[in-house]
Amino acid sequence: MALRVSNLASGYGRLQVLFGVSFEAPSGSVVSILGPNGAGKTTTLLTVMGVVKPWDGVVELEGVDVTWLPPHRKVELGISLVPEGRRLFPEMTVEENLLMGAYTKRARDKIHDSLELVYTLFPRLKERRKQKAGTMSGGEQQMLAVARALMARPKVLLIDEPSAGLAPKVVADLFQTISQLKKEMSVLLVEQNVAAALEISDYSYVLENGRIILKGPASELVENEHVKKAYLGV
């Protein structure tokens, strides 16, 4: 199993946000975590990454316990995050942002290869490679955020709400590309755009109030009454 998370608990200060969250993301698949605003989706990814300190639980990467490692060690070992809101380095060019993504030793050794890879995946970024990241359109910025995370050569790619603020057509293209990524790694996608996410997911979890309340193959969750009513508006 590429990523296995068991009974994860965490929060901010005294506020507990996650209450024993468990899920797994095998390589070769897209797994999604869906849920409403404030459910704890971002917190889940940040805790897996170590940006938010876990209170309890276990995070395993390919069977190795990495729960307590700091973020930079986890990146080195193969977990990469596309943060909510993209969080590009606005004063750097597209290419400089990509190079920052390949910061770890392991990634630097493959830097040329990785650049070629992400430019093939997102030809748009190649055209814009000298442009300041902060001046690009929302869709381009999201592409860059995903590409930058890929530069780290992750085994597990965590993506936080890539669809936010993008037009449906742009979302469709982006999700198309994301679904291709699973050939090389395990993709864990967090989304509020439930319909779009279910379409490209192999397996999904529904997170509400810091707890997983539903899980199953995406094809089954589409038919679930709660999912239909609360998230798909049918």
Partner: peptide, 12 residues
């Protein structure tokens, strides 16, 4: 430019 983003690039 963005310390949190730097962290998840593998920077300490």
């Amino acid at each position: 430019q963005d310390e949190d983003a730097a962290k998840v690039m593998g920077i300490n």
